[in-house]
Design a protein around this nucleic acid. Structure first.
Lengths: 144, 144
DNA sequence: TCCAATCATAGGTGTCTCCCCATCATTGGT
DNA sequence: ACCAATGATGGGGAGACACCTATGATTGGA
């Protein structure tokens, strides 16, 4: 007796919300085991993909409040995953860069994320996963 | 300069999380205009689909804490969308049922949800939406 | 040289969401 | 008649999240 109301399951919006929440929750849970949160992963990924950033640029890119970036970077620095350095060209700015440890941690997180993915996408075969990923990719840009 | 790190976009888990959060947020926003939250809609849908419930059964079905059901039903009752009545066979139980107003409100919510869906699924054609819905449906049962 | 804008930072707020507990009425079984 | 279990209810707590403000350092342009 744990059926979900069919009129909700008929809504793709509801399914997206539900599946998304589960994905988010599971990933967050795994990250928590390593003492990290989702934003930490996002920042590490941004640093890895685009190189060192001024904190301000991280905030813009990730659509996160600058004051929250400070906290995330604080924690990444405390864990030895990122380093801060004053930008000598503009000494207001602080340039954040990945340490080798941070790069290694990110690689671990990627493995973790793929394991979570394996759990969630279990019922789908390789082709179906690809289709799902493609469809979601096309939705993603619209979101603000 | 608002690009999202490619290594995140490559993760279906991340896309699900992101798109799901957006879907959730938009739907919640619309419901808020009508003074309701997502749980209100879920309860209304459960009552409409399965008929009157004891509060305890609502809690079980929707996987929500019984004490939270009380609050949601409080608000639905205050809005005139649901009614409480003691179960005469077991007077500990309170049976919750939809009022005509509640049924009408749910119909409105369904329209709202479909409008949100239209926004989110904009880039996809009818067939693609169907495929997405089907894939998500198959993921949904595994989630606990 | 001076001022407004930019940046990092510290600290706090409001909202949600989920969860736990104590209480009280009622029940079913002993 | 009595007791353990069940159900509704009120209350409150922990944590995540997004957002907002004030302060001090630094910059670039007037």
């Amino acid at each position: 007796m744990e059926e979900i109301p069919p009129s909700l399951l008929a809504l793709t919006t509801y399914l997206l919300s539900r599946v998304g929440k589960s994905a988010r929750g599971r990933l967050a849970g795994r990250l928590a085991e390593q003492g990290l949160k989702l934003w930490h992963m996002a920042v590490l990924a941004a640093l890895a993909d685009f190189g060192p950033h001024a904190q301000r640029d991280l905030a813009t890119r990730l659509t996160i409040d600058p004051s929250d970036v400070v906290k995330v970077v604080d924690e990444l620095a405390a864990a030895g995953y990122a380093e801060r350095a004053r930008d000598q060209a503009d000494r207001r700015r602080v340039v954040v860069s990945l340490t080798p440890g941070g790069r290694a941690a990110l690689a671990d997180l990627d493995v973790t994320a793929r394991a979570v993915q394996e759990e969630i996408l279990g019922p789908l075969d390789a082709h179906e996963r690809e289709v799902l990923h493609d469809l979601l990719s096309r939705l993603q840009p619209r979101l603000g």
